[in-house]
Design a protein around this nucleic acid. Structure first.
Lengths: 218, 218
DNA sequence: TTAAAAATTTAGTTTTGGCTAAAATAGGAA
DNA sequence: TTCCTATTTTAGCCAAAACTAAATTTTTAA
């Protein structure tokens, strides 16, 4: 049985791994609103428990059992969000903090009965997929450029919104549907990213724009 | 905001106070499955927070705000028990441990929305009354002699079951409906109690028998 | 290539809630 | 009243999870 602190680390690492396979100490500390030194300590404990692989001064990645744990926490979180929203009438912005507490209740009987009671929902109120008992979930193929991994080849599938200004900017930059690109770098300074598009490299996209561009890993 | 450990202490003291206004350290340690020394430490902290009144080597009693806190925890606990049993189909013996975790979720919005969703139930699946938002609950007038307070005048209101053997024993002991009595002592050795009945004092009643005799404080 | 900056780890503390062993106190029996 | 016993408290520690400050390693830039 894992503590609430341990579960929160695992969940955070899982989310951070979506955009970059290796998760650094500072990054994790920022996400968990704690200090890097505390993260180092905890990461060692989690490695000892076999939940992740850690290399000094480099970073960490979840093991298979770490990922399975993360998915079970995410499952509980999203089921509770669904419950709060659908059954209790919470606004979608009110559900997160309460679900953050409820996800740590330890009882697999509770999780399974809740799932059945809700009718085995596939998506939470924010549209995120809910993992099933085995940790499988409907893969959400599209993600925006802020969430997409660095270094992998991506294909533009669509845009999140359709304003005139956005479409104008996209066509000017040759960011059209079907185009293939690769993120070469992510700048923490302003959250902007640098991409390589059709061979041409080094052009920069603001965080604002990147959030509108939906891509799929190929 | 109180920690889970603090809430568990308050809840335990509240329950123990029902049978004896003053709660001793050993008694509390046994109930919480911890050691007397740990209890002393925590009790001092709770007194500093104004939740209870404590006198060295004597014991403690909840203050008004301690009682209010206890009632709000009991409210959450019983609402969750009702939910687990009525909505999720838990067996009545399965609800307690899970409710024990759920009762510590901090969100008054959650408690109130859950209450409304359940239709403002007055009793949990075990028949215990659920306190309302203000901490008021339907008073369960009758209690058995094991739960009744020491020293207060009690009136016999009925019996829990109606077997021949029980009724025979009761009539022999003059324990008839309407009779008034007072508990003079509770023996931890065998959980038996000593009562004073119609002026005559010093007779002993086994735990088994006491559980069948329903009384009301007058 | 080397020095400065940034990221990360180590060492030493703190807080919370628990523990053991020893000391203190209260209450009952002789 | 005095002594014994049971209860309770004190003192000193431990583990988890955090923190600060200092040391170390990696990365970057001159």
């Amino acid at each position: 049985m894992y503590s609430i602190a341990e579960e929160n680390y695992i969940k955070s690492i899982y989310h951070l791994q979506r955009s970059n396979d290796n998760v650094g100490t500072n990054e994790l500390a920022a996400d968990l609103k704690t200090k890097p030194a505390s993260v180092t300590d905890m990461i060692k404990k989690l490695q000892a428990k076999g939940l992740l692989q850690y290399e000094k001064y480099y970073g960490c990645q979840l093991t298979a059992s770490g990922k399975a744990l993360a998915l079970s926490i995410i499952r509980r979180h999203r089921l509770w969000e669904y419950f709060l929203s659908e059954k209790l009438g919470f606004g979608w912005e009110e559900v997160h903090d309460v679900a953050e507490q409820l996800e740590h209740i330890k009882s697999s009987l509770l999780t399974e009965k809740l799932d059945a009671y809700l009718g085995f929902p596939r998506f939470d109120p924010h549209g995120d997929p809910i993992p099933d008992k085995q940790g499988k979930m409907i893969s959400v193929e599209w993600q925006n450029l802020n969430e997409a991994p660095v270094g992998k080849t991506l294909k533009i599938m669509g845009v999140a919104s359709q304003t005139q200004e956005l479409l104008e900017m996209l066509s000017r930059k040759n960011l059209s549907i079907g185009a293939q690109l690769k993120i070469t770098q992510r700048f923490s300074f302003d959250q902007s990213i640098e991409i390589e598009l059709d061979g041409a490299s080094g052009f920069n996209i603001s965080e604002r724009l990147a959030g509108e561009v939906l891509v799929k890993t190929i």
